[in-house]
């Protein structure tokens, strides 16, 4: 396990690469879900206002 984590001495380059990839991927996903949540909430609020 330690051997795996050390990446043959290249851990300081390999793991930041994978961490950055995870960060970029999750950020894209987060912003997409957040944007949808926001617009759906707004439209449903407007719909319930016009119904009453």
């Amino acid at each position: 396990m330690t051997e795996f984590l050390s990446m043959g001495g290249y851990a300081v380059y390999v793991w930041p690469s994978f961490a950055l990839t995870a960060l970029v991927t999750l950020a894209n996903l987060y912003f997409a879900l957040h944007r949808r949540k926001k617009v759906v909430a707004r439209l449903q609020r407007e719909a319930s206002q016009s119904a009453t």
């Binding site: 894209n28 996903l29 997409a32 879900l33 944007r35 949808r36 926001k38 617009v39 759906v40 707004r42 439209l43 449903q44 407007e46 719909a47 016009s50 119904a51």
Partner: peptide, 25 residues
């Protein structure tokens, strides 16, 4: 991600159209 954001932007741009309002209702 593109499909998700496309759906959001369609809602944002066409929020006044009848099909969006129907679905919202």
């Amino acid at each position: 991600v593109m499909l998700l954001n496309t759906r959001s932007l369609i809602l944002e741009r066409e929020s006044k159209s009848s099909w969006v309002q129907e679905r919202a209702a």
